[in-house]
Amino acid sequence: MRKLLAILAAVFCIAAASDPAERLADPAQEARARALFSEVRCLVCQNESIDDSQAELASDLRRLVRDQIKAGKSDDQVKAYLTDRYGEFVLLKPSFSWGNAALWGAPFLVVGLGVWLLARNLRAPRPSSELSEEEAARLADLADDDQT
């Protein structure tokens, strides 16, 4: 979602926030470059993208990406170029590979497991709609109102 927003944002604010001296002449190419920047790590910085970082290396990487785009490379080609040179470490979005299966799969696994446990619990004997005597007594004692 952020990627999409970033692309759109970059398209519509034309003037990129990065240094005007670095900008590409073609606004469409510049927008693509900006979208890519937010996915590329500034290698010497502390967990910043090259879009945010003011470090010299980030500026070098930005120039590299802009040069590639100017040369007519696609986004994937630019990313491949970067990973060939710097390894997967340079990309802030980990690839969908087997090595990262646990990373991408875990959120869905937890949701699946939780829903399965809930469903199993629900299949236990159906509750009567009335409260039992003990429950009614406890509720009366606990809840003098219907606050959550």
Partner: peptide, 26 residues
């Protein structure tokens, strides 16, 4: 923690940044 785990297990360094969280957490 995944970058640490991955690096300890396979020696490969990867980064997990905002694009990952936007696709999963959001």
């Amino acid at each position: 923690l995944y970058p640490l785990i991955r690096e300890a297990a396979t020696g490969e360094a990867i980064s997990v940044g905002p694009p990952f969280f936007n696709l999963t957490f959001t």
